[in-house]
Design a protein around this nucleic acid. Structure first.
Lengths: 159, 159
DNA sequence: GGAGAATACTACACATGTTAATTAAATCCC
DNA sequence: GGGATTTAATTAACATGTGTAGTATTCTCC
């Protein structure tokens, strides 16, 4: 036996146990969290990704272009294009051409989109309150801060 | 102004800032981590999900049924069915009927599958070593432990 | 042995992931 | 100025995933 912590009959001992896999831990925790948010999104006919876009637009203090949205939402540009088309069709966002660069499409929440965010937000906050209650507010904050630092450490430096 | 920490021109102040969103933090960190693993999986023509299944099978000390795999991989049963069909087609797994319950399909790594995992594992470990070096081994362990506890706290109790 | 529950699969509609190619506009450089 | 290059965003095409509903088979319990 080369290792002592692995299950004794594990076929290959040379691999990190599934439990200690970082991507898996992140995925499972996210799944557990999303279980509490998904019914809320479904109620408003929003997909996770659509909600991510709306959140990002809401967080931005100014209208932003598609490239900035790609960075903010961790979506790929082709996926984002489709999502924006849907949201525009639904009347939740507006697009205008950037005055100084006509290649760029500038996206902003429409009044309808603002109302939609405002409608979902309180329920989302209530879910957060529940999570904080069961895990601890400071503990959750600290976990999120660690996640940000890890993401930072793993991302390629912007030169 | 009701709040002081939000961006002054934020359209709706009543929502948690995007940066503090737990699902978003989990997603971004996972994306950052996966950037380092994806080339490795692509090299072996594996999708993330296929690799998750192989990892789960490898971690299991015994062959397990589809239901257990659903729990272990956080995949939905219909997705898992297709993935298993592909992996079986590729010769990476074997399926047999459970001796005591013919409804159940019991999945195990084939010798080919074991070799595949053994081939990918060292490179995966090397990537982990890089991550641990840049973030800290103990710090990473502690983060993963917190993720597990949060996931536990958020999951419905098994009665 | 029959009703109901459990397991896994199939079918379907829809959204997203992913790579490559394309369009249009800006920038560079001579 | 004008052609080559770069950039922003979209489109195309395909694979895959998500999520719901329904089905077949088998098991369990009365």
């Amino acid at each position: 036996m080369a290792t002592s912590t692995d299950s004794p009959t594990s076929p290959t001992a040379a691999i990190r146990s599934f439990d200690k896999s970082l991507p898996m831990a992140l995925l499972r925790t996210r799944e557990a969290a999303m279980q509490h948010f998904r019914p809320l999104l479904a109620e408003h006919d929003l997909t996770e990704q659509q909600w991510r876009v709306l959140r990002a637009l809401n967080a931005a203090s100014e209208p932003i272009d598609v490239g900035a949205l790609v960075d903010a939402t961790s979506l790929l540009a082709p996926s984002l294009t489709r999502i924006l088309a849907k949201l525009e069709d639904d009347g939740a966002i507006t697009r205008t051409t950037h005055p100084d660069d006509q290649r760029r499409s500038v996206i902003a929440l429409s009044p309808t989109g603002v109302r939609l965010v405002a409608k979902v937000a309180p329920q989302s906050e209530a879910t957060y309150a529940m999570i904080e209650k069961s895990f601890g507010t400071r503990r959750l904050q600290s976990l999120i801060a660690e996640l940000h630092e890890l993401a930072e450490a793993l991302s390629p430096e912007e030169s």
